Simulated assay, not measured.
Amino acid sequence: MKESVGIIGANGYTGSELVRLLAFHPKVEIKFLFSRSNFGRKISDLYPDLDSICDLTLTNEVDEADILFLCLPHKESQNWLRENPVPDGTLIIDLGNDFRLDGKFGNRNFVYGLPEIYFDEIQDSKSISNPGCFATAIQLALLPLAKENVLKDVYTTGITGSTGAGQSLQATTHFTWRNDNISAYKTLNHQHVDEIIKQINRLNEEKVELHFVPWRGDFARGIFTSSIIGCDLELEKIYSLYKNFYKDSPFVKISAKPIDMKQVVNTNFCVIQIEKQGNKIAVHSAIDNLLKGASGQAIQNMNIANGWEQHLGLNLKSLAF
């Protein structure tokens, strides 16, 4: 028998991507799609690309399900859970940032859902907090070096597509503004910095300072980051560290060749490349912000928590052209 799934906030980008992926997952079936703002409409009315795979109508009533995905605006998951108590046996995966820094909520303790370092904890949990998109890309780029205790001051730039800002219309997501345009935002003050530092400092003995400048790009989806770090290790040794660190991580690929964002768009993969000049290295990483940075990683966490193969529902090819 398949596990039943409910998606809370199904009308957003991450919710609709969950619908697209779960419709082909062999172990689950979507039971209901919750939306306060669009209930009564079919999900395919909002996203015509789903017309051939899902004919469910959005509802504002909550039904019981084995698995719940919370795809709500940041800081709304706690409010929703207070208003809608969920049985202890239900697996909850929160795609917001409510529980990334402090996982305690009532009798639940949300595990940080980065499978590459918390696989065992995710496997035993009924409460999972999905990492942020930039946080995922930057952490995966830095964790092997943190384990070697070589991080101190890290300078990172990263560019993201318009879907990273969510579905709500804003001046900076309008086509006429984004087209042929790039800008920095939340310079040195992005909300994912604390999340990244918390996890990096668990591995790195010396306190790490992360100086992060995010950019808006004139494309729809994807993230590309570059981190500059002082490091005296030889490049061959660094590559060896990365390959060993991620040897059991099926969605992280280490490349000796230059990488680009299109290698990962529409996949749950993260690709990483390292360059070195003198005593400085540049670590590049690329992910799809809606998949490995959100919905894909949430499904990966669901698979792990249920003891299923990590790739289920996630065998996707990148959009190279």
Rank of each mutant, 00 (worst) to 15 (best):
N107V: 05
N109A: 06
F110E: 05
F110V: 08
Y112E: 04
Y112R: 10
G113L: 03
L114V: 02
L114F: 04
I117Q: 05
I117W: 00
Y118M: 04
D120M: 00
D120E: 15
E121M: 10
E121G: 01
I122R: 09
Q123T: 04
D124T: 11
S125W: 01
S125N: 09
S127L: 08
I128R: 01
P131D: 13
C133K: 03
C133R: 02
C133M: 11
T136R: 06
A137M: 07
A137Y: 07
Q139E: 14
A141L: 03
A141Q: 07
L142D: 07
L143V: 09
L143M: 11
P144A: 13
A146R: 10
A146S: 13
A146F: 02
K147Y: 12
E148I: 09
N149A: 08
V150E: 03
L151F: 02
L151C: 03
D153I: 00
V154S: 10
T157M: 11
G158D: 07
G161Q: 04
G161S: 09
T163D: 07
T163E: 08
G164I: 11
G164V: 06
G166W: 02
Q167G: 07
Q167W: 07
Q170A: 14
A171E: 14
T172H: 15
T172Y: 14
T173Q: 06
T173F: 10
H174G: 06
H174M: 13
T176Q: 12
T176I: 11
W177C: 03
W177M: 03
W177N: 12
N179Q: 09
N179L: 01
N179H: 12
N181M: 11
N181F: 12
I182R: 14
I182F: 14
A184R: 12
K186M: 06
K186W: 05
T187I: 15
T187C: 06
L188M: 13
L188G: 10
N189H: 10
